[in-house]
Amino acid sequence: MPRKQMPAIARDEAVALYRGGRSMSSLARKYGVSAGRLTRRFREWGEPVRDHAAAQRARRGMTLAEWRRRVDLPP
Score class of each variant (00 low, 15 high):
Met1Arg: 03
Arg3Pro: 00
Lys4Ala: 09
Lys4Tyr: 03
Lys4Pro: 00
Gln5Phe: 04
Gln5Asn: 06
Met6Val: 07
Met6Ile: 10
Pro7Lys: 11
Pro7Cys: 09
Ala8Ser: 12
Ala8Trp: 13
Ile9Cys: 04
Ala10His: 13
Ala10Trp: 08
Arg11Trp: 07
Asp12Leu: 12
Asp12Tyr: 06
Glu13Trp: 09
Val15His: 02
Val15Lys: 01
Val15Gly: 01
Ala16Gln: 11
Ala16Arg: 12
Ala16Ile: 05
Ala16Cys: 06
Leu17Thr: 00
Leu17Val: 01
Tyr18Trp: 10
Tyr18Lys: 01
Arg19Ala: 11
Gly20Asn: 11
Arg22Lys: 14
Arg22Thr: 05
Met24Asn: 02
Ser25Asp: 15
Ser25Asn: 14
Ser26Ala: 15
Ala28Phe: 08
Ala28Tyr: 03
Arg29Asn: 02
Tyr31Asn: 01
Gly36Cys: 11
Gly36Trp: 12
Arg37Lys: 14
Arg37Thr: 05
Arg37Leu: 11
Leu38Cys: 01
Thr39His: 10
Thr39Cys: 15
Arg40Tyr: 13
Arg41Lys: 15
Phe42Asn: 00
Arg43Ala: 12
Trp45Ala: 09
Trp45Thr: 04
Gly46His: 12
Glu47His: 05
Asp51His: 12
His52Glu: 11
His52Leu: 12
Ala54Tyr: 05
Ala54Trp: 04
Ala54Arg: 07
Gln56Leu: 15
Gln56Cys: 10
Gln56Val: 13
Arg57Cys: 08
Ala58Thr: 04
Arg59Tyr: 06
Arg59Phe: 05
Arg60Glu: 06
Gly61Glu: 04
Met62Pro: 00
Met62Phe: 02
Met62Gln: 08
Thr63Asn: 06
Thr63Val: 06
Thr63Cys: 07
Leu64Asn: 02
Glu66Ile: 02
Glu66Pro: 00
Arg68Ser: 05
Arg70Met: 14
Arg70Ala: 15
Arg70Asn: 10
Val71His: 13
Val71Phe: 12
Asp72Glu: 14
Leu73Ser: 07
Leu73Asn: 06
